[in-house]
């Protein structure tokens, strides 16, 4: 038996708080997961579930007053959540690349894409101006920009939205990171271009051995792209496991709801709108299981006690129904 590979990223019991004048709200509560080298981990969940905050906490760019209040983030065996700004800066871009939702506003309008690429490359790699420019052209070619040697001197406004997102991907790859956090990288794009960008990310991840944390609303994209998926609800992970297992047999009622929102063969991919009710806001998370007011299978215990993430053969789910089945099976 070969020894199990070391995870690239480990997030352990992460807790992110939002202090307000009256009390402290909890945006991320006891979130743990890991990503293996080269693995694509999908993160899904409704708006406000805490996906972006999780990503920002990992790269150390939480917007104040949000702050990490507990847990650890470990990258390649090294703890990074408590690093000072200057040290963390050398991890951002070099070890962990980031891609944000809106390609139209992610690039500085006053500089050519080449300048922004060369600046990023030279921040992280020991290259002269010419070598950095060559690498920049190569990167632009690699993300599918034709005539990269000419396009490199163009300004962001001279590119279309899809092309700009490709430039953003090139920028995220510039320091040759081992992990890319892509936060809804296609939401702002035309449907026809979304698939191309996802395919590009997938290919680049494979070619470079880069792990990807892919945040999206789109369960369909996850099913096609990710190896594993984590489902978030109200600041917690409610289910995590291999994509196939979760798509085929979701355990948590919330995940079941998400799956039902992907239309089957022939349909257009849907948004996550088909579960009745709305996710509670930060200050209004109910006691017990946060999903209980919307859960079709709710029972008494769900309103009293908060379920922990319980491992199973195919991942883990935080649901009392699942836990009680497990307990009965053990008894019998």
């Amino acid at each position: 038996m070969t020894p199990a590979q070391e995870p690239l990223l480990q997030v352990e019991h992460l807790r992110v708080e939002l202090p307000t004048r009256r009390r402290t709200l909890v945006a991320i509560d006891d979130v743990s997961f890991s990503i293996m080298p080269g693995e694509v981990l999908g993160i899904v969940g409704e708006s406000g579930a805490g996906k972006s905050v999780t990503g920002a906490a990992i790269i150390g760019l939480l917007e104040p007053p949000l702050r990490i209040a507990g847990g650890r983030v470990v990258l390649g065996g090294r703890r990074i959540d408590d690093l000072p700004y200057e040290q963390m800066r050398h991890i951002r871009g070099r070890e962990i690349g980031a891609i944000f939702q809106d390609p139209l506003t992610s690039l500085n309008p006053l500089y050519t894409v080449g300048r922004q690429l060369v600046e990023t490359i030279r921040t992280h790699l020991d290259l002269g101006p010419e070598a950095a420019r060559e690498r920049a052209i190569a990167l632009l070619g690699e993300v599918g920009i034709a005539a990269a040697a000419q396009r490199i001197d163009h300004y962001p406004h001279q590119f279309s939205g899809g092309m700009r997102q490709r430039v953003v991907i090139a920028l995220a790859l510039a320091g040759n990171p081992r992990l890319i956090i892509a936060d809804e990288p296609t939401t702002a794009l035309d449907v026809s271009i979304q698939a191309q960008i996802i395919a590009l990310l997938k290919r680049l991840g494979r070619d470079h051995g880069t792990a990807i944390m892919l945040v999206t609303h789109d369960m369909g994209v996850i099913a096609e792209t990710a190896h594993r998926v984590a489902v978030m609800y109200a600041g917690r992970i409610v289910e995590i496991g291999p994509v196939r297992a979760i798509v085929d047999a979701p355990r948590h009622p919330y995940t079941v709801g998400l799956m039902d929102s992907i239309p089957r063969i022939g349909g257009v991919r849907g948004r996550l709108k088909q579960i009745d009710g709305a996710m509670p806001r930060l200050g209004e998370i109910p006691p017990g299981c946060a999903f209980n007011p919307r859960c079709p299978l709710v029972f008494e215990r769900c309103r009293r006690e908060r379920p922990e993430l319980l491992p199973s053969a195919s991942g883990a789910a935080a649901c009392w129904r699942f836990a009680e089945e497990g307990a009965r099976a053990a008894d019998g």
Partner: peptide
């Protein structure tokens, strides 16, 4: 934000 995320000084 993206410039910071790229680790620029």
């Amino acid at each position: 934000k993206f410039a910071r995320a790229r680790g620029l000084s």
